Computed example of a mutant assay.
Amino acid sequence: MAHFVYIMASRPCGAMYTGRATDLRTRVEAHRAGLSVHTAKYNIRRLVWFEEHDCFEASLRRERAIKRWRRDWKIALITQSNPNWHELTPQIPD
């Protein structure tokens, strides 16, 4: 089973949320539906970065590491693979 670590944003360099999920497409839709207090409060709706892991432990370590990062490091991570902060939901593997 795939495990995903992801970052969503309200706009380029705006409010961000880092999370982890096994069903990324469903989790993104839950954020957009307002089921997460933080993402609803800050209007965070755009999936701007994600990576896939093979096991739960690896995804958990990566999520916790990214959550401890400074904001500018997160922005650099996103910009490296998605310079225009485009919506990446269509790129989620099935």
Rank of each mutant, 00 (worst) to 15 (best):
H3W: 15
A76G: 07
R45N: 14
S81L: 05
T89A: 11
Y42H: 14
F50T: 12
E51H: 06
F4C: 04
H3R: 13
F56I: 10
S36Q: 10
D94M: 03
S10Q: 06
W85S: 02
G34T: 08
A65R: 14
I92W: 00
S36R: 07
A21G: 12
N82I: 02
E63I: 00
A30F: 02
R27P: 09
S81A: 11
F50L: 09
G19H: 07
R20H: 11
E51L: 11
K67M: 10
I78C: 09
V48N: 02
V5I: 12
W85D: 01
A58W: 09
I75K: 02
K67Q: 12
E52T: 15
H31D: 00
E87A: 06
G19W: 08
E87S: 08
R68K: 10
R11F: 12
Q80S: 08
D54C: 07
Q80H: 09
M1P: 09
D72Q: 08
E29W: 05
C13R: 14
G19E: 07
L24A: 12
T22F: 13
L47T: 01
C13E: 14
E51W: 00
M8A: 03
A65G: 09
I44A: 05
P93Q: 02
I78S: 08
N82P: 00
V48M: 05
I92N: 00
F56A: 12
G19F: 03
C13F: 11
L88Y: 02
H53Y: 15
A2M: 04
G34M: 05
F4G: 04
H3I: 11
W69V: 01
K41S: 13
M8P: 00
H3T: 15
W73D: 10
E29C: 06
H38P: 03
R32G: 07
L77S: 09
A2F: 04
A15L: 06
L35P: 00
Q80G: 04
M1F: 08
R68T: 10
E52K: 14
N84M: 09
I66W: 06
I7W: 01
A30N: 06
R32S: 12
H53L: 12
M8G: 00
L77N: 04
A40M: 14
A58N: 13
I78E: 07
E29R: 09
E52H: 06
F56T: 15
I7S: 02
A65L: 15
H38M: 04
P12A: 08
R62Y: 04
D72P: 01
W73S: 08
Y6D: 07
F56N: 11
R70E: 11
A65P: 03
T22Q: 15
R45I: 04
L60F: 07
N43Y: 06
S81Q: 14
R45Y: 05
R62W: 00
R27I: 06
N43H: 14
A76M: 02
W49K: 03
S36I: 03
R64Y: 04
W69Q: 06
T22C: 12
R11C: 10
K41T: 15
T22D: 15
P83M: 07
R68F: 02
Y42Q: 04
Y6Q: 05
A15I: 05
S10W: 12
A58H: 10
P90C: 02
Y42M: 00
G14Y: 10
T22A: 13
G19C: 11
